[in-house]
Simulated scan of single mutants.
Amino acid sequence: MGCPSLIAGEGAGVALAQAYVLAGELHRNPGDSAAALDRYQARMQSMIRRKQKLAESLAASFVPRTELGVRLRDYTTLLMRLPVFPKLLMGRYFHHWLTLPDYGM
């Protein structure tokens, strides 16, 4: 489950969240790694699936089929360098749908 997709973005952030949840579940279930892995999987699966679906919906914009599409992608990429545009254009794609639990470690 380590990577939602190659184009979902946020790979390092998702990896850190997964490592935190896995460590926390192992801490909560000492000596029962199967239970810890099951709880980890259940907690992370929904977020990963949503990120995969979003990546599928964005895939076409990474590889446009027309010259106009290529130009739009390239100009959009340039706009992403300005502070307001990433959130404006992509804000809904960066929602995590995950609340990290407090494992008390």
Rank of each mutant, 00 (worst) to 15 (best):
M1T: 04
M1N: 12
M1F: 13
G2D: 05
C3N: 07
S5E: 13
L6R: 11
I7R: 03
A8S: 15
E10Q: 11
E10Y: 14
G11S: 10
G11V: 14
G11D: 10
G11A: 15
G11T: 13
A12G: 01
V14P: 02
A15I: 08
A17E: 12
Q18A: 08
A19Y: 10
A19D: 08
Y20S: 00
Y20N: 00
V21G: 02
E25A: 07
E25C: 14
L26E: 03
L26G: 10
H27L: 14
H27R: 11
R28E: 10
N29K: 11
N29M: 08
P30Q: 10
P30Y: 06
G31Q: 11
G31P: 02
D32C: 12
S33Y: 09
A35S: 15
A35I: 06
A36D: 06
Y40D: 01
A42W: 06
A42F: 07
M44C: 00
M44F: 04
S46T: 15
S46I: 09
I48Q: 02
R49S: 15
K51W: 09
Q52M: 05
A55V: 04
A55I: 05
E56T: 15
E56W: 05
S57Y: 03
L58N: 09
A60L: 02
A60E: 15
S61P: 02
V63E: 07
V63C: 02
R65A: 10
R65L: 09
T66A: 15
T66M: 07
E67F: 13
L68N: 07
L68T: 13
G69Q: 07
V70H: 14
V70T: 13
L72N: 02
D74R: 01
Y75S: 06
L78H: 06
R81H: 13
P83F: 04
P83I: 01
F85I: 05
K87H: 08
K87N: 05
G91L: 07
R92S: 00
Y93I: 01
F94P: 00
H95F: 13
W97Y: 11
L98S: 05
L98H: 08
L98M: 00
L98E: 07
T99Y: 10
T99E: 15
T99G: 12
L100W: 06
M105I: 14
M105D: 08
